[in-house]
Amino acid sequence: MVERARALADKLNHLFANATTRSGQEYSNEQVASAIVATGVTISQSYIWQLRKGKKDNPTFKHLQALAAFFGVPVSYFFDDEVTDRVDQQLEELKAEQARLSEIMDSSDAQLMALRAGELSPEGRRQVMDLLDVVHRLEQAERDTRPKE
């Protein structure tokens, strides 16, 4: 069975899905276009959208170089399916590692909060607890008002 090569749009969308901002959000076409334009390469968010939708599928080498540089992959990612597969595997491993580190950081934040609270006076600890109660109630109310999926 011969495996069909992945389309440019599929490869590009995979990069968008797996290379996220620090907050974990997917980059927008506008963010990518702005970052590339800042390097001196002219590209628009609508052109990136067209590439991602498969409406355009023959970008210039300069555009592919700029997209590869933005996402931190070799330009051969777009041409060589073996490179694509290898990079995609590395991206998946990196994403899993980032998720693991995020869990550790969340735990570390709670430990740091507890350590700092232990250094406070009894009145200071009461104030921190009052503040935590307020934040907890606000977040709980926000969760309760979200529409159910």
Rank of each mutant, 00 (worst) to 15 (best):
R4C: 00
K55T: 05
G72T: 08
E119M: 14
P74T: 02
L91G: 05
Q98R: 15
Q90C: 04
A99I: 10
K11A: 04
A35D: 05
K55Q: 04
D10P: 04
M113L: 15
D88S: 12
H63K: 11
L64I: 01
V83A: 05
D130T: 13
Y27R: 03
A5G: 07
F79P: 04
I36S: 01
A38S: 12
D81S: 10
Q89P: 03
Q140L: 14
L8A: 05
T21C: 04
Q98M: 09
T84D: 08
E30N: 07
L51M: 08
D85F: 00
D57P: 02
P122W: 04
F71E: 04
H14S: 08
E93N: 05
S28V: 07
K55F: 05
A33P: 02
E30T: 13
A5Y: 01
D109W: 09
L131C: 11
V2L: 00
Q45I: 05
P122K: 02
P147N: 05
Q140D: 09
L112Y: 12
A117S: 11
R126V: 13
M1P: 06
A99T: 12
D10T: 14
E93S: 08
Q90K: 14
R86N: 11
L132Q: 11
V83W: 03
I36D: 00
G24A: 05
L94A: 11
G124K: 09
R100D: 08
E142M: 08
P122H: 07
E123K: 13
D57V: 10
E123V: 11
R146N: 05
A35Y: 06
W49C: 00
L132G: 10
R22H: 13
I36W: 03
Q98P: 07
P122N: 02
H136S: 10
L12M: 08
H14C: 07
P59N: 00
Q50F: 04
R146K: 09
G24E: 06
F16D: 00
S46K: 02
V135Q: 15
A5W: 00
S23D: 15
L12E: 02
A38T: 02
V83E: 09
E97H: 10
K148D: 13
A19Q: 15
E97N: 10
I36E: 00
F16Q: 06
G118Q: 04
M129A: 15
A9Q: 13
I36F: 05
E142Y: 13
D144Q: 11
A19F: 15
E149A: 06
R146Q: 10
F16G: 03
F70P: 02
T60D: 08
S34C: 09
S44Y: 03
D130H: 14
Q127D: 12
I104G: 01
G24K: 09
A110Y: 07
T42I: 09
V73W: 06
D109H: 12
Q98C: 09
L138E: 10
L94N: 08
G40M: 01
S34E: 15
A38Y: 04
T42V: 11
Q98A: 10
V128C: 15
E3Y: 02
R100T: 07
A19W: 14
G54T: 04
